[in-house]
Amino acid sequence: MRSMVGRSLRLVAGRPWFGICLLLLLALVILGPMLNVFLWAFTRNWAYPSLLPTVWSIEFWDDTFARADILEGFIASVWISLIVTGLSAVICLPAAYAFARMQFPGRTFLLLSFLATNAFPRFGLYITIAVIFFRLRLIGTVPGVVLIQLVNTLLFMIWIPTAAFQGVDRALEEAALDVGASPLRVFLQVTLPLVAPALAAALLLTFIGTFYETQGALLVGVPEVRTLPVVMIRLINNQVIVQYGAILSVALWVPSLLLLIFAQRVLRGNTIASGFGV
């Protein structure tokens, strides 16, 4: 048995066909759904069993963006994401600096305590938050949505910038101090430019993550506050016209993909994994 498995392992690693099969399978399963949505966005009719739309059209694009709920959802999402990202930065960035640069008892423990956000089953946690918001009458309000979405942002907004501040070569700062620059000037002109890309990436990841955050917004925001993902859920549940959801997906996803690719290039490969504890 063992030698059989050993032989097949050897075969698999030595031959490219395993890789090619894997590639094709992944391409179908991973890219298939996204490609399918792309096609739907340019479809008028799509009869079964054709693999491609039977009648192509872009007529639904105007309709989609003329819908009041989509427009309002978009505006709400942009505003709320900006507020959450700004708030998260104000709360977390000074802390990240302290975690990276200062020595105080319990530093490592406190830094790791932010893992608590990962250690709860997420929606159960949201329910317990929503119960408090219910008593405080924060359900259906923008502050309620902002606060529940803030929960998601803490870990990345602390861990990524902490790693960035730790990565700055202290010799550069000390050289600047030696030639008489004030600490503030050293921070602004030496430290900040060096960590700026990572900070930008952290802000971007937070903004995008918040923009598409669905379950917290649905639980706490409805019925008065409807972000775009919540509008999208309604489109899915009502199933009126397939194209609305498809067009919205395409229009929203492409810019977020570009931004995320930028963010990932800036960060070292393992930063995202490190947010999950690796």
Partner: peptide, 22 residues
């Protein structure tokens, strides 16, 4: 293969759900 495996990371959950339904 790595790019494909990491691709879902770049698709927001709500869009992935919609795409998978289709």
């Amino acid at each position: 293969i790595q790019m494909l495996a990491l691709f879902p990371l770049f698709v927001p959950g709500i869009i992935a759900a919609y795409a998978l339904i289709r």
